[in-house]
Write a protein that binds this DNA or RNA. Structure first.
Length: 756
RNA sequence: GCCGAAGUGGCGGAAUGGCAGACGCGACGGUCUCAAAAACCGUUGAGGGCAACCUCGUGUGGGUUCGACUCCCACCUUCGGCACCA
């Protein structure tokens, strides 16, 4: 555990504790997501077995670290995703999706991590590198299991019912990447084949002067001419060897002619068909119509290979366009469509293609189906059995879980470790009883975490994954505290799984999280905390020295929770000093002062309730802590002017308000004040709105926007009386230099501005 | 290149149209002490003035407004994300 974890957990805990005091039933669960490559690699590094390392780590994490933080986790409902009673239901979800046709097997180009020796989902490739080990990813064609998350693309774009940060919505939307356009079929000249392309610019079809297929396009071999066969084969082989990253970033456009021609359905002219790696097999149709006059990439390619460039769009102002001209504009050289605007022409041309049966409107998504298989050991076996006669069959639900067998050599080799265990592989078909083989891949770690919020509620149930009544009562999650790194992975997957389970009748709602709040990152000298950088900071020493309460508050005092911050321990002493002063107020003698400041103290007390509550509610505990510090300072300085009753009222409020932030201190203080256990079961103090404002307030008097004086007026003073008071001020009169004000703006309760 | 967030003292930050710099760190001065630490008290945006006070000041340039850190436009910088997505 490092200080980043403390920041995350305590930020969420302070919020949860406030809500509990505010009278909500708060369920704050915790669990361990300990399957997956990360845990397995860690075990490999230690030369131990994950089944041994994981429980030991969980124990240390829970007993020696988490429990010291003072978070109100419900440990009785802890989950551990590596336990059979948990992953049984992960497998059950797989079976539900399989039965619904949402899990399927396909031969497809996939991301392969050569170091981890497994495939990865698209979301788990960061900048062309493995999300876990940073190794450059290569493409491989393999038969793998996928979830049809793309079927949910449209619904995943709908955030209308949830309160998510704008950044999260934007990122998920961009990741899903909806784009409207058309599919257009091009007949191949002198061959029975047809090539379908996807374009967002059907209006430019008259300018399509060649076609480009991705090297992996299934028709490449079919259409290539005998003369070009060798060159094409060489190019395809070369493209396969390249890392995806190199293909994407390579500035130079490369490609090769297939020797074949297609007919442009708009012009009826033959156009050459090329293969180039700037066209991606996994997007759209894996093939494009190239319009070099109106697309940067096609222009670069056409220039490099001396292909024809035909402008068919004009700038709206009629100027001669500098090519490539990628904006919209009126069509030229486009037959009956000439003169139409891009938007108008797109509609008309798609209509015309539909009539001829050679095209259709089409929406495409950048989102890929979720690749679920992993050729690794440490995960839930995918619950599928292959039978010669009956094909792929799900393991019957009453036979779940498919236990992960304890094996010694689990080192990844590229083929699933489970495949080396005949006792595991060989089984019988659940349908016909004949000999069958088990699936030997395990499922993606992100599937484990895509549903745990459902399991927390019903950890004691062994006959069902969750109790419907409890789901109805507690879910969806009211406040989900997480990291922005999960935006296009965990959050997206969880939303998908819940929507799928909803459609299958297993949960009554279709968004897992109502309110999402993202925490910022804790850095050291501006760098992310990581073992490889050697800058991981453990909270243990700080907690031992200052106590958990001081450390919690210190971390949150860094600034807004969503901003994170750079960890320097230079400010811990300030929080420690504050806690010491508060403690003195609680334990010191009660003053019997003259009560002259009782009214002010009461007003401050009410204001404090509002400030602390609003600060915590907005995940800005630092302003709540600052307000508490101010109040402690004020009480210390005005003891002699407060009655014993008012003093006690103020101190008790202070203790109640600090309870979410410093739970241990507050409990002890509460007891010292003569109350019984527990301060955390007390209601959050309510502020009396009528006491928030003072009878007399000080407001600034500005002249031309510059503050020249401050005057004391009644809070409810009328405009004319405020004006009169402002003009009566010595300083104002001096600044006016005898001139008549041209205008006087009175903002009730805030300011007066005199325009000279 | 595109999308997003942010730029305020020496530092973390506060103020979301009305007194810029709350609160804290650091620094400086003081009390206590043989001394130091701790604790406590005070000062601390820049410049000017003996002083009361004055001038400037929230990345840069423009704009809206009686009034702008806050709203609008353009730009610069930093961070995060996406990136040949047709």
């Amino acid at each position: 555990m490092h200080v980043g974890h403390v920041y995350t957990y305590c930020g969420a805990d302070v919020f949860g504790r406030l809500r509990r005091m505010q009278g909500y039933d708060v369920f704050q669960p915790i669990g361990f997501d300990a399957f997956g490559i990360h845990s397995e690699n860690f075990a490999l590094k230690l030369g131990k077995h994950p089944a041994e390392v994981v429980p030991a780590n969980i124990r240390r994490f829970r007993e020696e670290q988490m429990k010291l933080l003072g978070c109100q986790f419900d440990w009785s409902r802890e989950v551990d995703t590596t336990q059979p009673e948990y992953y049984r239901w992960t497998q059950w979800i797989f079976v539900q999706l399989f039965k619904a046709g949402l899990a399927y097997q396909a031969e497809a180009p996939v991301n392969w991590c050569p170091k981890d020796q497994t495939v990865l989902a698209n979301e788990q490739v960061i900048d062309g590198r493995c999300e876990r080990c940073d190794t450059p990813i290569v493409q491989r064609v393999m038969r793998q299991w996928f979830f049809r998350i793309t079927d949910y693309a449209e619904r995943l774009l709908d955030f209308s019912g949830v309160d998510f940060p704008e950044s999260s919505i934007k990122r998920q939307t961009a990741w899903i990447g909806r784009s409207e356009g058309a599919e257009i079929d091009f007949a191949v000249a002198d061959q029975p084949a047809e090539i379908t392309v996807f374009t967002t610019r059907p209006d430019t079809i008259f300018g399509a002067t060649f076609l480009v297929l991705a090297p992996e396009h299934p028709l490449v071999a079919t259409i290539t001419s005998a003369e070009q066969r060798e060159a094409v084969a060489a190019y395809v082989a070369q493209a396969q060897r390249k890392l995806e990253r190199e293909r994407l970033i390579g500035a130079e456009k490369t490609g090769v002619f297939t020797g074949a021609y297609a007919i442009n359905p708009a012009t009826n002219q033959p156009i050459s068909i090329w293969i180039a790696d700037y066209v991606l097999a996994r997007y759209g149709a894996g093939a494009i119509m190239a319009v070099p006059a109106h697309d940067d990439r096609d222009y670069a390619f056409a220039s490099a290979y001396h292909l024809p460039i035909v402008p068919v769009i004009q700038p709206a102002d009629g100027a001669i366009a500098e090519l490539p001209f990628v904006e919209d504009g009126p069509l030229i050289e486009s037959g009956e469509f000439s003169g139409m605007s891009s938007a108008e022409a797109s509609r008309a041309i798609v209509g015309w293609l539909v009539e001829r049966g050679s095209g259709r409107a089409r929406v495409t998504y950048r989102l890929r189906d979720w690749l679920i298989s992993r050729q690794r050991y440490w995960g839930p076996p995918i619950p599928i059995v292959y039978c010669e006669a009956c094909g792929a069959q799900p393991v019957p639900e009453d036979q779940l879980p498919v236990l992960l067998p304890p094996i010694e050599n689990f080192r990844p080799t590229g083929t699933a470790p489970l495949a080396s265990i005949p006792e595991f592989v060989n089984t019988t078909c659940p349908l016909c009883g004949g000999a069958a083989r088990r699936e030997t891949d395990v499922s993606d770690n992100f599937l484990d975490s895509a549903w745990y919020f459902l399991r927390y509620l019903s950890t004691e149930y062994h006959d069902r994954p969750w109790d419907t009544e409890r789901v109805r009562r507690w879910l969806p999650v009211d406040h989900y505290a997480g990291g922005p790194e999960h935006t296009t992975m965990h959050h997206l997957y969880a939303r998908f799984i819940v929507k799928a389970l909803h459609d299958l009748g297993h949960v009554p709602y279709d968004e897992p999280f109502k309110r999402l709040r993202l925490h910022g990152m804790i850095t050291k000298y501006g760098a992310k905390l990581s073992k490889s950088r050697g800058n991981v900071i453990s909270p243990d020493g700080y907690i031992a020295q200052y106590g958990a309460d001081v450390f919690r508050m210190y971390m949150l005092f860094l600034g807004p929770w969503e901003d994170g911050g750079d960890f320097t321990d230079s400010g811990v002493s300030g929080v420690a000093r504050f806690v010491g002063r508060l403690w003195e107020l609680v334990t010191g003698a009660t003053p019997r002062g003259d009560a002259t400041l009782d009214d002010e103290a009461e007003r401050r007390r009410n204001q404090l309730i509002v400030r602390v509550g609003e600060g915590i509610d907005g995940m800005r505990a630092h302003v709540a802590i600052a307000a508490l510090m101010e109040e402690v300072g004020w009480l210390r300085g005005n003891m002699e002017q407060l009655s014993a009753n008012q003093w006690r009222r103020s101190i008790e409020t202070l203790v109640l308000l600090i309870a979410p932030l410093a739970p241990h201190l507050a409990e002890e203080a509460w007891e010292r004040l003569g109350h019984s256990f527990s301060v955390h079961q007390q209601p959050w103090p309510s502020a009396d709105a009528t006491l928030l404002a003072a009878a007399q307030i000080e407001i600034p008097v500005q002249i031309n926007g510059k503050v020249r004086d401050r005057i004391l007026v009644a809070a409810d003073a009328s405009e004319p009386s405020v004006t009169a008071a402002a003009l009566a001020s010595e300083r104002v009169r001096a600044a006016l230099e005898g001139r008549e004000p041209r205008r006087i703006v009175v903002v009730p309760g805030r300011a007066v501005n005199i325009v000279r």
